[in-house]
Amino acid sequence: MSKGPIPAICTALALAGAPLFVPLSHAEALRFDTTGYRIADYRAPVPDQAPAGRIVGAEEVEALHGRGALLLDVVGLRHFRITDDGGWLVPEPHLSLPGAVWLPVVGWGQLEGWQQDYLDESLAQLTGTDMSKSVVVFCLMDCWLSWNTVKRLDAAGYSEIYWFSGGVEAWADAGHDLVALEPYPLGRSRPE
């Protein structure tokens, strides 16, 4: 039996079938906002469950893309400039999956208004507003930006979401080629 008042109470509650709340450490709590989006330490081990949809591997990604799925790369960019015509000036090339579309500012835990507009406008264009279109979301291995984006797509109402949690590295490790990718152009949305 438990010793001390707290363990004894927890044991009694567990035996009674009451759910137990396991508080996050202070450091862990600072990594998430109140709505569950990861807001810090984006390059860290990710969960083995998707926040929505399901996890897929490289071979499934290839099959889904062959059936018309949108491959959505959300590897983040912190340093960039945007031209008057909506093009992106980036400091270095980005290698990604052939046929993927790169939205480099939509995976952060908290989006500015123009970033949310960019995500919404881009997805509407890329899916033809079909909320049942298959979307495969990825970034890099151990990257929470894709996890956040999957959560965001689910909240927006997309029903066929796949999380390729291994991302670009898992694709290359499976023997597939990578290609240089430019960010998808901005439409009406602009950073302020």
Rank of each mutant, 00 (worst) to 15 (best):
A100W: 10
V22L: 14
A69E: 01
P23F: 10
L30A: 15
R67G: 04
K133D: 01
L77Q: 07
T129N: 14
A170R: 06
A156G: 01
V106S: 13
D117Y: 02
D33H: 12
D73F: 05
A170G: 01
P45Y: 11
Q116V: 02
C139A: 15
L111M: 06
G36Y: 10
P19M: 14
A40P: 01
A172M: 13
L123R: 07
V179F: 09
I55C: 05
Y42S: 08
K3M: 04
P98Y: 14
V150L: 03
E28I: 03
L95G: 04
P98E: 14
R190H: 09
V150M: 03
S146W: 00
A8S: 12
L24K: 06
V46F: 07
G76H: 05
S165E: 08
T129P: 00
Y158I: 03
W147C: 00
K151P: 00
A63R: 05
L89M: 07
S134M: 08
E112Q: 07
R38E: 06
R152V: 01
A58E: 10
T149E: 12
F21M: 13
V22T: 13
C143L: 11
P5G: 07
G86L: 15
N148D: 02
A156H: 05
T149R: 12
E60S: 05
G87Y: 11
E192M: 02
P45L: 09
L20C: 04
W147A: 03
N148K: 08
G66P: 03
C143W: 01
T35A: 14
L153I: 11
S2G: 03
L77A: 08
L71K: 07
V105S: 14
G99P: 02
D130R: 11
N148S: 00
V22Q: 12
V168P: 00
C139E: 10
P5Q: 15
P91K: 15
P104A: 10
F32P: 00
Q116Y: 04
S25M: 10
H65W: 14
P5M: 15
H79G: 06
P104M: 09
E192L: 12
L13T: 04
H94A: 09
R188I: 13
D117E: 12
A155P: 00
M131Q: 12
I161R: 09
S146D: 00
P23D: 13
I39L: 03
L119S: 05
H94L: 11
P45K: 14
V90I: 15
P47F: 03
A16I: 04
V137K: 10
V75R: 15
R152E: 00
G109R: 07
P191R: 14
Y118C: 00
W144A: 01
Y162E: 08
E192T: 08
H79W: 11
P104H: 09
P185V: 15
R190L: 07
R38D: 01
Y184C: 02
G66V: 07
D130N: 13
P47T: 13
I39Q: 03
L30M: 10
G76T: 02
D120C: 11
D117A: 14
K151C: 02
A16V: 08
G87V: 03
